[in-house]
């Protein structure tokens, strides 16, 4: 047992070797050391979902994970999904549906919905209940959710959502 621990995190496809205090929260490492500012801290208790990342592909609230717990695991933030066709489709649908206002919850919402839509057959899109249930992991105080749900369903129906011009 030592004061700092050496960890290797695979963040957005890049390995980072870091010395961290065991108490350091993953979200703080991502924000403060790696300057991944899409990670937002809204409650630091796993309720609001503004800090949602993909941990080995599963949406997880990075405020409730110690950096040491993520040793050797793959962490994907919104920045790491930039350019991905599913994410691009989702972002476009959010824009078209006015699905954001202050933007604080948006990155966590996008990451969470991305995991719902990724690899999904556009002919069997999620139901509205399924989308809303998944969004329970994200609080939004601005939009009332309706526009987000519409955006997610639109993106799901259009598959990658990436209609080539």
């Amino acid at each position: 047992m030592t004061e700092t621990v050496q960890v290797t995190l695979l963040v957005n496809g890049v390995e980072h070797a870091l010395a961290v205090e065991p108490r350091l929260i993953l979200a703080d490492v991502l924000r403060e050391r790696m300057e991944l500012h899409s990670i937002h801290l809204g409650c630091e208790e796993g309720i609001c979902g503004a800090c949602t990342v993909l941990l080995d592909g599963e949406p997880s609230t990075s405020c409730l994970i110690l950096a040491v717990q993520a040793e050797g695991r793959s962490i994907t933030t919104l920045e790491g999904l930039d350019g991905d066709p599913t994410m691009t489709g989702l972002q476009a649908a959010f824009h078209e549906n006015f699905a954001l206002q202050c933007g604080f919850c948006t990155p966590g919402v996008l990451v969470n919905l991305f995991s719902l839509l990724e690899d999904r057959d556009p002919s069997a899109p999620p139901s509205e209940v399924e989308v809303r249930t998944r969004l329970n992991g994200n609080l939004c105080r601005c939009t009332g959710y309706q526009s987000m749900v519409a955006a997610a369903m639109q993106a799901a129906r259009s598959g990658s959502g990436h209609e080539d011009p």
Partner: peptide, 9 residues
């Protein structure tokens, strides 16, 4: 139990 993200961990 909680929501999807909490259940994942």
């Amino acid at each position: 139990i909680g929501h999807h993200s909490v259940r994942a961990i």
